[in-house]
Design a protein around this nucleic acid. Sequence first.
DNA 1: GCGGCTCTTTGCGCCAGCGCAAACGCGCCA
DNA 2: TGGCGCGTTTGCGCTGGCGCAAAGAGCCGC
Lengths: 235, 235
Amino acid sequence: MPSTAAVAEQLAATDLFSGLAPEALDEVARLGRVQVLTRGTRLFEQGMSADRCHALIDGRVRIAQSGAEGDQVIVRFVGPGETFGTVALFTDGRYPAEATTVIDSVEISWTEPTLLDLIHRHPQIALNLVKIVGSRLREAQERLRELATQRVDQRIAHALLRLAERGVVPGKEDAAIEFPLTRQDLAEMCGATLYTVSRVLTAWEKAGYIATRRQRLSIRKLSELRRLAGETSTI
Amino acid sequence: MPSTAAVAEQLAATDLFSGLAPEALDEVARLGRVQVLTRGTRLFEQGMSADRCHALIDGRVRIAQSGAEGDQVIVRFVGPGETFGTVALFTDGRYPAEATTVIDSVEISWTEPTLLDLIHRHPQIALNLVKIVGSRLREAQERLRELATQRVDQRIAHALLRLAERGVVPGKEDAAIEFPLTRQDLAEMCGATLYTVSRVLTAWEKAGYIATRRQRLSIRKLSELRRLAGETSTI
DNA sequence: GCGGCTCTTTGCGCCAGCGCAAACGCGCCA
DNA sequence: TGGCGCGTTTGCGCTGGCGCAAAGAGCCGC
């Protein structure tokens, strides 16, 4: 279990607490509960009463939403420094999706009263929150447009570009997705079937645009993928 | 042009300023700019630099996003009391979509510095904002799931239910959509084509579930539409 | 009351992507 | 090291919804 000081330092890099003074970060770190989780751990279920706000310190968490008929959609993959499971606190108090670690991870969370109290004393947190939720809304609306108007291969290309975003270095053609990702995952991210995703990826691998191993994927020709995505993206 | 007092009263019913003291509402009303707009007025364009936060006092505004190839998607229809064009202020400062009145409308807006100042003095506004953006994010993610997993007719049913939501009275089977809405609009709301929407609506009209006139639509059998939507909705 | 514009309907052909089935193969664990 | 389970590939047939074209029908302005 990391020390409070170490946690405070990592909180400075989170989207929710950026811009806070060091003393404030110490306080935030002290009030949170840190958990070390092995891969495959379910943090919360869809529909569960939401009583905590979460931030990921290290690892990767998959957020997925299920429909009544068992159909699933992946909302996003959460990386280090990102907030999750927080919107529920401000809407109807139930998690709208489930969260599962895809690799060993470390998270920190705060109870709702604690968060509200922190916001009260550090209003910057509320502004950060608006910014976070706003960007996510914007991304969701972009995905909606894609899903409504683009072909499957364009959407898959977009999904890959988004997933690899963190590893992109300007001018470099390679970028890796550093966590396990199945064809099924990709399909659930872009409204396709496992089969279609497999066919498309196989074609791209043959063309040399990407390289895949079991549950691993890396991009070899970023520019080609961008072209395939339709160059519409702002990534 | 309405008086400040009248405006303040209406602001109490908006999602952004609910919970504020009457004096605060007076102040908010005084600082805003009220505009009376005829139908078809463009309030802002996609990509335009965003310098104002808007709230609709009366009328209806259509928010639509365009892609690079001219493809359009309707993000939502804004009704009285709702905030719009505000997320842009907290993200990259550009409107991600365009806004157009579909009927004669009245809006009020505030400059970014004014809004930030108001938030500073009335932190409740920030919390309201998180709540608003959060609900919208949730709805966007629900639509994403629908678009990814459901058939066109289910999505059309959902779209109609959402549009008629305000007019729904528990126990009543009828509900009207009180603003002009073309087949094209509906298609752009649920990722379908004008033709498909027309075919589906014609079938439903023959079945007696809905009634349509040119650009007008009302629901006659809410329960049937709910069944068609798959009863998965939380509406 | 007439002309034209915009919205709407409908027929028809077509194809992107689905979905089943079955084989394949990587990696883990015993 | 051998077997097994899960992820992946691939063939094949099918169909939901697209998309063109053209006709039909409200509504507005002149």
